[in-house]
Every structure is written in structure tokens, then in C-alpha cells.
Design a protein around this nucleic acid. Structure first.
Lengths: 211, 211
DNA sequence: GTCTATACGATGATAGAC
DNA sequence: GTCTATCATCGTATAGAC
């Protein structure tokens, strides 16, 4: 067994367990058992449980953020070239489409997405700091784009609307068809779900604003 | 020291710690130390950690759900009497206003609200089952109301839109002004925040729907 | 009945010998 | 890279004091 195998097996197992049981709810013993490696291997490769978490972020979040940022920049650049305002929908899609697609990529990515959104939504202390710093630049550009798209709405308000949109999107990201439903009647296909999310989010972002 | 004192002190301490550290992240020792009672008192009064959680639900969620249900029923009844459709905004406000106000009631209620919404959003296993069964009737009536308000939108779609709305509302409910911000520019007063939430949610619920 | 002191078995993360 | 020892902390149980 090579080092590469061991490291990856740990990462894969951790990703799955963190996603289903949460970061605090997952034990290193559970991870190493699932990965079929020695308990101490985690400490050897990643230093600690937190180090393992950081490695997971590095593996998945960095490339994803790159795509999201590029998408947003493209929308903004094209709008500028045409000397028109980008629409809130275009801007939001530039972020949401890769986000939603990422979830359907690999099975591992799916677990990672669930893990990260659960942490974001639930306010898991250990995770929030590490990942907020990584997504902050994306959020800033997103907010810039929304400011351009909706010049009549103050930026602080848009910041909250963006956060609301994240809360709504999170419901799709953490949704697991296998799990017992949170509400009855939530049996839409993945594609339809995503279309509905976009409708809702755009409707909310563009809602009339009163002072 | 009477029993009432001890029980309540445990409940109050648990509420605060569960809210800030999560259910799994909180130890009985931490709770009993904060409450300045003996460790075994939890087991004596509540049977177990889970029993303590159930007692917290009983104390806060039952009366809140009563108010929410009554509010929704009132809106539906009045609309029926006038033989008009309720608006999505009315229906949603019947649920959201008491929910948001509850958070501002007592300091303890604030902690409880954060705890419960963190659990809902983050998918905390231990909590979800216990509390989903308690809010399910409210959600059902809410969905009934939205179906009446927006007859052009299929019920499955409305179920998802309602879930999106919950995700958005959760962002207000878990927000703690003391904590480091998730995004920059989120410095609105509680009142404004709530007005913005309603604008966003109603905009999303009423968004045009394509098949 | 209430509450306390203390102990148990299980599991947590980590460090050092190999 | 692995194995084992170690130590902290977890939830729970129980015996006895007030």
C-alpha cells in the first residue's frame, strides 16, 4: 500500500463520514476503520483532525472556487463590453450552476458538498472559520455583481438578500433523497429542484424594495 | 435550593450551550458546571441527555407552535369568510412574525431559537427527528395556505419554495451580531433585517413559475 | 424526594517507540 | 508508516447523605 493510497482513502472516508455525521460527530476511529488504515495514520499524514479537514478543503474547494470566480468575472466582463447591466439571474447563475453541478459530479464531491453546506448553515465552529475565508472573495464579487444588476437596492440590503439566497440554496445542497424528508411533498427530481431554486432566488433578489 | 431552581437552571444552561456549541458539542459536565449543579442532577431530573433536550422542546416549542398555528388558521378563516384568496405574504407572515418575535422575547428564547434553527439547517441527527415531528403540523397548514394563495403553482413546487423560505429565514434566526460576520456588510438592525427577509421570501414564493 | 460524590466502561486525540 | 501506551473526557449508573 503506497502513501498516496492511504492518504486518499482517509480523505474519502472522512468526506463521507463528515457529511453524514458532521465534523464533531465523526470520530477518527470511525474514519480510519472505514478507510482500513491505522488510527495513527491520520496524525501522521494530516497532523490532527483539523488538519484532515483542511486537506479536504484544499482538495475540493480551491478548484471549485476558481470556476465560480471565473464564471462571475465572465458575466461581469461581457456586460461591461456590451455596456449593459448584468441581470441578477445571470450573476446568480454564474455562482449557482457550478455549485449545483459540483454536487452531481463525483460521489465524493457530493459528500463534500453536503458537509460544507451543513457546516455553513449549521454554524459548525470548527469549520466556519476555515472555509469562510476561502469563499469570501467569491462572495464579494457576487455582491459586486448584484450591486450592478440591482442599482436601486442598497448594498447592505443586497448583502442580506445574498445571504438569504445562500440559505435557500443550502436546502438543495444538503438535501439527501435517501434521508427522511423534512417536509412532505419534496419529491422532485434533481433537475427540477434546481430550476425551482433559481426561480425562487431570482424572485427574492429582485423583489421590490421599500425604505 | 428547591427542585424548581435546579431544573430550571439546568434547562437555561443547556439552552445556552446547545445554542452556541451544538448538541453533540455540548457535554453534560459543561452544562452542570455552568448551572452550578451536580452532574448527576441531569440524569435524575431528565433521565438522560436526550431527555434534557426533549424537556427544552417542551418548554419553548410547544407554546410557540400553538401561536403559529392559531395565526395561520386565523388568516385562512378570515380569507374564507370574505370569500377571497389569502395572499402568500399574509400566510407567510402568520408564521414568520411570531417566529421572529420569539427570538427577541427572552434571552433564553433567543438561545433556544438559535439552537433549533442551527439543528434544522445543519441537519443535526439527534435533534431533527424530535423536532421535525413537532413542527410538521405547522408546516402542513402553511403549505395548505400557500396552495390557496398561489393556485397556479403545483403543490410539490410550493413545498420546495416553502423549504427555500425556511432556509432564508434560518439565516436571520441563527444570526448573532456578536459573532464574526459570514459576509461583510451585514450590519442591519433586527427590525430592518426582518423586513428584508419578508420582502425576499414573498418575492421568491410569488416568483413566476414555468413548467 | 433531592441532591451529591464517586466510579465505570467507552471512546476521544495524540505522542513516542519501533 | 504502524503499533501501542497514555491521558482526557464523554454519558451513564449507583450508593448514600440530607
Amino acid at each position: 500500500m503506497t502513501q498516496r493510497d492511504t492518504k486518499d482513502r482517509i480523505l474519502d472516508a472522512a468526506e463521507e463520514l463528515f457529511a453524514s455525521d458532521g465534523y464533531v460527530g465523526t470520530s477518527l476511529r470511525g474514519i480510519t476503520t472505514a478507510a482500513d488504515v491505522n488510527l495513527a495514520a491520520v496524525n501522521y499524514h494530516f497532523g490532527s483532525k483539523e488538519g484532515l479537514l483542511a486537506a479536504l478543503f484544499e482538495r475540493r474547494l480551491v478548484p471549485l472556487n476558481k470556476v465560480r470566480l471565473e464564471n462571475i468575472e465572465t458575466v461581469l466582463r461581457e456586460a461591461e463590453q456590451k455596456a449593459v447591466r448584468p441581470s441578477a439571474g445571470e450573476v446568480m447563475k454564474a455562482f449557482l450552476i457550478p455549485t449545483l453541478e459540483f454536487k452531481r459530479n463525483a460521489p465524493g464531491a457530493r459528500h463534500f458538498a453536503r458537509m460544507i453546506w451543513r457546516a455553513f448553515l449549521g454554524g459548525d465552529r470548527g469549520m466556519q472559520e476555515s472555509f469562510l475565508t476561502r469563499v469570501a472573495p467569491v462572495m464579494q464579487r457576487l455582491l459586486d455583481g448584484l450591486s450592478l444588476a440591482l442599482p436601486g437596492i442598497p448594498r447592505e440590503v443586497l448583502a442580506w438578500r445574498l445571504r438569504f439566497a445562500m440559505g435557500a440554496a443550502g436546502q438543495v445542497m444538503v438535501h439527501d433523497p435517501e434521508q427522511p424528508a423534512l417536509m412532505t411533498g419534496l419529491r422532485l427530481s434533481e433537475e427540477v429542484m434546481q430550476k425551482e431554486l433559481l426561480e425562487f432566488v431570482i424572485g427574492g433578489l429582485e423583489a421590490p424594495h421599500e425604505d
